[in-house]
Design a protein around this nucleic acid. Sequence first.
DNA 1: AATGAATGAGACTTCATTCAT
DNA 2: AATGAATGAAGTCTCATTCAT
Lengths: 201, 201, 201, 201
Amino acid sequence: MAEEKNKEDLILDVAKRVIEEKGFYNTRMDDIAELAGVAKGTLYLYFKSKDDLFTKLMEREYNKVVSGLVQVASSKDDVISKLDAVIEGFLKYMEENREFFLSIMYEAPSIKKDNLRKKIRENNRTIQENLGKLVEEGVREGVIRDDVEVPVIVGSIIGTVSRVVFYAINFDREKSLLSFKDSIMKVIFSGILKEKGGLLW
Amino acid sequence: MAEEKNKEDLILDVAKRVIEEKGFYNTRMDDIAELAGVAKGTLYLYFKSKDDLFTKLMEREYNKVVSGLVQVASSKDDVISKLDAVIEGFLKYMEENREFFLSIMYEAPSIKKDNLRKKIRENNRTIQENLGKLVEEGVREGVIRDDVEVPVIVGSIIGTVSRVVFYAINFDREKSLLSFKDSIMKVIFSGILKEKGGLLW
Amino acid sequence: MAEEKNKEDLILDVAKRVIEEKGFYNTRMDDIAELAGVAKGTLYLYFKSKDDLFTKLMEREYNKVVSGLVQVASSKDDVISKLDAVIEGFLKYMEENREFFLSIMYEAPSIKKDNLRKKIRENNRTIQENLGKLVEEGVREGVIRDDVEVPVIVGSIIGTVSRVVFYAINFDREKSLLSFKDSIMKVIFSGILKEKGGLLW
Amino acid sequence: MAEEKNKEDLILDVAKRVIEEKGFYNTRMDDIAELAGVAKGTLYLYFKSKDDLFTKLMEREYNKVVSGLVQVASSKDDVISKLDAVIEGFLKYMEENREFFLSIMYEAPSIKKDNLRKKIRENNRTIQENLGKLVEEGVREGVIRDDVEVPVIVGSIIGTVSRVVFYAINFDREKSLLSFKDSIMKVIFSGILKEKGGLLW
DNA sequence: AATGAATGAGACTTCATTCAT
DNA sequence: AATGAATGAAGTCTCATTCAT
């Protein structure tokens, strides 16, 4: 099975693992080649450069998250359920990708090479906008508060989740991220919903 | 006046500016020297190594934020006012330090060198803990909700603010961060306070 | 043939030649790379650092001398013949390695890096001890004088040879070292043997 | 008293001490200035360059030894007594100057800078020649053997003493050098004298 | 005479990329 | 397609020397 996987994906998988361990800037092409069990030169058969490899990795991972979130969201009918599903999906992805996600989310934006940088910014924007649209829908439907800017609501969602993940990674590695899910939901929804009387949150 | 400033501080100021522009990993000693208008060797009169320079910079900046926040918090009587002051102080510091703060907060943790890494983690923990204590106080006083873990509440505060800052830096550079203050407050406090009926938020 | 030689040995050979010419402290990695006809980076494929390269060179050269001397000594039966063979072997090695040997013997001990320093001292001790054992054997057999400390006898052997080599290198480069062999033998043996009446020396 | 000493000599004294500790190549102008209690710039008031300082130091130390040896030699009548006095004087100087002497004797010749190198070689030659003259005198008088070249005899004297000193410094620091004096004498004189029947040695 | 902050050439080392096999 | 030895630009750091005070 694993053998079936094409080599490009294998290399990206390995790169991801190395980045998780060493961070973006400390990941060497050597490290990737060694862990992938291929020669350094081989990397260049599949990727034009380190930058290209990293860019493709970004793209793949973002797509994985985003398409996953889009899917779980579209399987629900109302905005609240969609948001709930998105946050849960986000945490699940995080659970499996911990350090890596923080790397691409925060370390990566400061990367020098323009291509990579642009791609990452683009991806970040995609997430921001997708979530933004969902929020706007909620505002139109009257379930999400309309007295604050949409980016602040999106910020509350992404920020709270990210920071709790950051906390868990750095200061409480034992705990499962999902164990925080309910609390995170409570806090986020209390913060962004319009009607708060006698509801779930 | 500016001339009076000691050279160590001048170099740190310059380093901060360069980091803001290029990110941690792309900042060269050469860059700092050039912008500071001194020779490369001069940097090594004031700092033992690049690592040392960066570590000292972290320390200075964290101290600046933390001591500022501690001060504004202690000037208030109740927890709500303290939190309000802390968030406002945080945004104000951000307003002036935009990229840099995100760099030290998120890019920096993935740094290789142990000294620097340890220092940053330590500082992050200090912030987490200080805010945690404030939150616990609020819980004891009955103003902050007690049905979720403290780190989630802290995460909501730091995360929301950070992500809105991140948004503003990356996608809406024109807007003042402080213009988001009221909205951020509304969302955060709605999310974390116990009594939500008929209050400020 | 020369082409067959592995690159590590090639680099060490070159390093040795450069050291002979410039001395330990003035030998740059650049010099070695250039003379070896490889890029600077290549040196680091074979040696972890300059220190490592130098240490390995020491080791190789010492082993060459010591194993050579051990071999010629063991091919003889009596102590006198062994010493004779050792001194001749020593001079022959010197003949081919002139400056280099003095470098590793005397300049090297003052080297800063601990690894290298330790290795050199160790090697020096090995020579001292091996020769010491031979001398002790001679003392037991009654051919070497027993009224002076062994280190003084060893010192006479190594010292006389070394200093004549030093003299030849510095003040009389035309002359073959081996042309001094008989004289050196006469002086050393007259100095250290027990019975001096009517003998060879 | 110490105050009376001119600063040039003070600096040279300090330089000598630092060289003993760190070796030639690891002695920094900084080290000398600090230990001498003067500013770095001050060194350059008294010496044109590091090279100049080292050269002057060589000169002073060589003169000290040589003039000392010349003096003790001239106070004796016969060649044997002169040699005896010279060797004893040599060991006494060594006793007080251990590492330093080996530094200037063996590490120093490989120094790059031409001025310094030339000076050291010159000094070495002076010693070689002075001792050579004494030996020639002994040969003419019939007390020193005439069947070997003079440099070999000189080599035996300088070499044996130097190597025993080297041994003592590196492998037996506890012992006084002078305690080896008699043994050294015995071995050297047995090696170089013409008549060995029933003499002192 | 004395200072010591500042300089900058030059050394070591890393690592993305190439290319002959 | 695959290899991995080789490359060399670019980075960090050292230290003899200078010069304004």
